[in-house]
Design a protein around this nucleic acid. Structure first.
Lengths: 110, 110
DNA sequence: ATTGATATATCATTATTTATATATGTTTTA
DNA sequence: TAAAACATATATAAATAATGATATATCAAT
């Protein structure tokens, strides 16, 4: 550690409004769940129905529906109904970057 | 939605091992807290002592210490003791990208 | 129109985890 | 030994998750 660093007692840059951090934390927390990450991973490859997602993620239908709706409510996903089937897809392209970012850290540590 | 998308019933790419998703989720969840995001934001600007971080983040000393140790345990931060003071700093440079990524989404929605 | 089957959503319960606050303990230095 | 700097413990409260049962809505066939 440098002497200069030790002397630093305040940050140079202005800090973000706490309200922004709360929104960011909610958004991240919504993604920070293994089953939801799996769903995101699946949806980064295209649109799928609830049943297809349930099957691919090996979750029950109610659990899948719950996770999907939570992520839609937070703006991570969007859905489109066509008759009795609902197609979900990724609303926030940054999810791809974040997933890659986090997973590359994991690989690196193995 | 294209007809091709509707027909897709399985993902093209192999999915990640679930264990990896669990680690990724834990890692993300650790960051997904407004107070911890504030601490990360501060530490992205340099090294600080526990007291300095508590003061800057407007948290109590025990709360600050708790968050710091949690993030260190998950590998987000590292600490270095010098006498009776402990300096914390960011261990994972990707935190900067993730914070920027998430916050730019927020700004965009305002 | 009524029936049955399918796709999705909601609800209620229980269990688990997480956050916050206050008090106390430990280590180091003067 | 007294203070300063951190860490830990404990209790309470709050949020989150998992599960199974049930409800709603749509479609297809008669």
């Amino acid at each position: 550690m440098s002497a200069a660093a030790k002397k630093m007692t305040y940050p140079r840059d202005r800090l973000l409004p706490f309200e922004d951090l709360k929104v960011a934390a909610e958004w991240l927390k919504c993604a920070a769940h293994p089953h939801r990450l799996r769903i995101i991973e699946i949806l980064l490859q295209g649109e799928f129905t609830v049943d297809a997602i349930a099957s691919l993620s090996k979750l029950s239908q109610p659990a899948t529906s719950g996770h999907l709706r939570l992520m839609e409510a937070k703006g991570l996903l969007v859905s489109e109904r066509s008759g009795r089937t609902v197609y979900y897809s990724v609303a926030e392209p940054k999810l791809k970057d974040i997933l890659e970012c986090v997973c590359s850290s994991i690989k690196h540590k193995k």
